[in-house]
Design a protein around this nucleic acid. Structure first.
Lengths: 208, 208
DNA sequence: TCTCGCCTCCTCCCAAAGGTGGATCCCAGC
DNA sequence: GCTGGGATCCACCTTTGGGAGGAGGCGAGA
């Protein structure tokens, strides 16, 4: 299915895909709302979705379509490669991202890839996602963390869920005094002042 | 440059790439250590790097090569598509990831893409990265956050850096009592008990 | 056997955090 | 001119958190 607000663009895609024997355009839509309705009726395998569309934008439409038919695969089409679009699109569940000025083979490869259950991003987009991903994954865990005992890590985990010492004690079936001992040891080993800093460190190091 | 511990595989790649006029194999390596040395001597634009290699594995070699020549682009080659490999490879700075049983055009496209400064992942790999990425990015921000005033957000930011009320006061040039007032308002609006829970919420909502 | 690390619990003490109930000032909107 | 919200500050109080120091039990390893 092709969803784009410009008739010419839709016609272009239809022509383009008509040459492929394994691809059939079963529906078109000019607005996000229409896309949702058409997807409900025709249940397409793959939706080519423009982001900029009237009534309901491509992202909201994507979210809606996937909510109704989780087997559908949505390929986002856009002229721009703005970051927010990329992240937001992946967040709502799009399977891929193709720029309108990518070569045609790229588009066809993407359609076939997502139809097969894979995913495909335009190289330029991949670059962005990778660097964002690498940035997020790259959290040098402070070596002091290794010094914590199993019990201390357990206490730290509960601290990071916002529990008080008394609540942690109840959770672990030990006295609040013991919890305080563990907390003291945790703070000493990690060279921190209070539990707040412990929570910050844990999140920064991507624990839990 | 081709780095793979199996001679036959290297020969295969060399043959494969010989047919492409815009690609030239300038060096080969059979171990990670050799790859680092060869990269230092020949400074290739793109390195095809096997992960499983003796002496130094592909990931360590990648890290080393990029440390010495940040302009180089490394394409990871592997038979398996194990998750740890993917994430670790992206973390050490690889530009792409190609499975050995991907079609040849995929490999060529990947080489040209990374040489041009883009990035390319095999569709199957992209699927993994996207879902991991979407999972990480999917943090529904609680609507109560919108109720916070600018000053309160500012205080919350400092709380999330592990500062005490007195330190926050010093930072913002206001008295500690004022900070306490802001904190009380923050906790009331967000329906939380203490600053620890505020830090947890802020990190979960991906603020700051 | 003895020691050492870990877990458990205690008391005493003080600082920090948070709640309550005020107050003043300023500014924007009615 | 009045009102309301935000920012600033105060005093008073209770609860929680964290440090110091000590002590007993238990299991693994020298």
């Amino acid at each position: 299915m092709v969803a784009d607000d410009q008739v010419m663009v839709r016609a272009g895609f239809r022509m383009l895909l008509a040459g492929e024997t394994d691809i059939e355009v079963v529906a078109e839509a000019g607005t996000g709302a229409e896309a949702v309705a058409q997807a409900r009726r025709h249940r397409p395998d793959v939706v080519l979705m423009d982001i900029r569309m009237p009534v309901l934008d491509g992202l909201a439409a994507t979210q809606q379509i996937l909510a109704e038919n989780s087997a559908a695969r949505v390929l986002i089409l856009t002229t721009f490669d703005l970051d927010e679009y990329v992240y937001e699109a992946l967040r709502v569940g799009a399977s891929g991202f193709v720029l309108k000025d990518d070569p045609v083979e790229q588009l066809l490869a993407a359609i076939r890839a997502v139809a097969a259950g894979d995913a495909l991003l335009s190289p330029a987009v991949t670059q962005r996602v990778i660097s964002a991903f690498a940035r997020r994954s790259h959290r040098p865990a402070p070596p002091e963390l290794a010094e914590l005992t199993a019990r201390e890590l357990e206490v730290l985990r509960l601290i990071c869920r916002g529990l008080s010492n008394a609540e942690i004690g109840a959770e672990l079936w030990i006295s609040e005094t013991t919890v305080k001992t563990h907390v003291t040891h945790i703070l000493t080993k990690l060279r921190l002042r209070d539990r707040v800093q412990a929570v910050v460190l844990a999140y920064e190091a991507d624990l839990f």
